[in-house]
Computed example of a mutant assay.
Amino acid sequence: MSQDRILQVSGTIAAPPEKAFALLADPARHPELDGAGMVRGLDSGGPVTAVGDEFVMRMNQDGIGDYAMRSEVTDYEPGRRIAWAPSIHPPGSLAHVIGEIDPSGHTYGWELEPTADGGTRVTHTYDWSGVADEGALGLYPRVTEEQMSASIAKLGEAAR
């Protein structure tokens, strides 16, 4: 795994891990947690209950416009960890914008650790080390550490 293809930020929120996890496991709530402002809404799927579950989100980014991403849950431990791997949905639907490259192979992950005061230490990881198409690497990273920190703050607000 290449450390130069991973962003990781941490912060503490004033809510227990179970409340934070419930929000992360419900893709319908993801738009209010998105510090990057790309997530528009749930198209299908959710709530998440296990590795292998899938959901499709409506998205929008400057330079790309509206599109959809299908995410498969790759890690799931209730109250502790959740991660998903997004891919363009349907495959190839952004070829007119990004060309014939395959940008899949990245994950968004969350780890939750209870704190002594009843809050949660949140670690948010964005990992694109699994992107195999060298031509797609110029698209990454899609989010910044600041946007990821904003997502942690939004998670804390929503979990109150």
Score class of each variant (00 low, 15 high):
Gly52Glu: 00
Gly130Met: 05
Arg29Asp: 08
Arg58Ser: 07
Met57Asp: 01
Ala95Met: 02
Gly135Gln: 13
Asp133Thr: 08
Val143Gln: 05
Ile13Asn: 04
Leu155Arg: 07
Leu94Asp: 05
Leu7Ile: 13
Gln147His: 13
Ala85Lys: 04
Val97Met: 09
Ser10Trp: 02
Ile101Val: 15
Thr107Val: 12
Pro47Thr: 10
Gly37Ile: 10
Met38Arg: 08
His96Tyr: 07
Met69Thr: 13
Asp66Ser: 12
Gly130Glu: 10
Ala153Cys: 03
Arg70Thr: 11
Ser87His: 11
Arg29Asn: 15
His124Gln: 15
Ala153Tyr: 02
Ser93Gly: 03
Asp127Tyr: 14
Met148Trp: 04
Val56Thr: 15
Gly46Asn: 06
Gly105Asn: 05
Ser151Gly: 14
Val9Pro: 12
Ile6Asp: 11
Gly109Lys: 07
Ala14Pro: 03
Phe21Asn: 08
Ile101Leu: 06
Ala68Tyr: 00
Ala50Leu: 01
His96Ser: 14
Gln147Val: 04
Pro31Arg: 04
Asn60Cys: 03
Ile13Lys: 12
Asp127Gln: 06
Gly109Tyr: 06
Ala95Asn: 13
Leu7Ala: 07
Arg81Ala: 14
Leu137Val: 09
Ile13Trp: 08
Gly119Thr: 10
Thr12Gln: 15
Asp133Asn: 12
Asp34Glu: 06
Val97Ala: 09
Asp34Pro: 03
Ala95Ser: 12
Pro141Asn: 03
Arg80Thr: 14
Asp102Cys: 01
Gly52His: 01
Pro103Gly: 00
Pro47Trp: 00
Tyr76His: 15
Ser10Tyr: 03
Ala50Asn: 06
His124Ser: 12
Ala28Lys: 11
Asp117Cys: 02
Ile64Arg: 05
Ser87Ile: 00
Val9Ala: 07
Ala25Met: 10
Leu155Tyr: 14
Met148Asp: 07
Tyr67Lys: 02
Gln3Arg: 14
Thr144Gln: 00
Asn60Leu: 00
Thr125Lys: 12
Thr144Pro: 11
Leu155Trp: 11
Lys19Ser: 15
Gly79Lys: 04
Tyr140Ser: 00
Val131Tyr: 05
Ser149Trp: 00
Phe55Pro: 09
Ala14Asp: 15
Arg142Met: 15
Thr107Lys: 09
Gly156Met: 11
Ile82Pro: 01
Pro16Val: 06
Pro141Ile: 05
Ser87Met: 10
Gln147Trp: 11
Leu112Val: 10
Val56His: 04
Ser44Gly: 01
Arg58Gly: 05
Gly11Asp: 14
Gln61Met: 15
Pro31Gly: 11
Pro90Asp: 01
Val39Glu: 02
Gly52Met: 00
Ala28Phe: 03
Glu146Leu: 11
Thr115Gly: 05
Gly118Phe: 12
Pro47Val: 01
Pro16Thr: 08
Pro103Ile: 03
Thr12Asn: 06
Lys19Trp: 01
Leu137Ile: 13
Gly37Gln: 02
Asn60Tyr: 13
Ala136Leu: 09
Val143Ala: 06
Thr74Pro: 05
Pro16Leu: 01
Gln61Glu: 15
Asp34Gly: 02
Gly118Thr: 09
Gln8Cys: 07
Met1His: 14
Phe55Arg: 09
Ala15Leu: 04
Pro114Arg: 04
Ser129Asn: 09
Arg81Ile: 01
Ala116Gln: 10
Trp84Val: 00
Thr74Asn: 01
Gln147Met: 11
Glu77Ser: 09
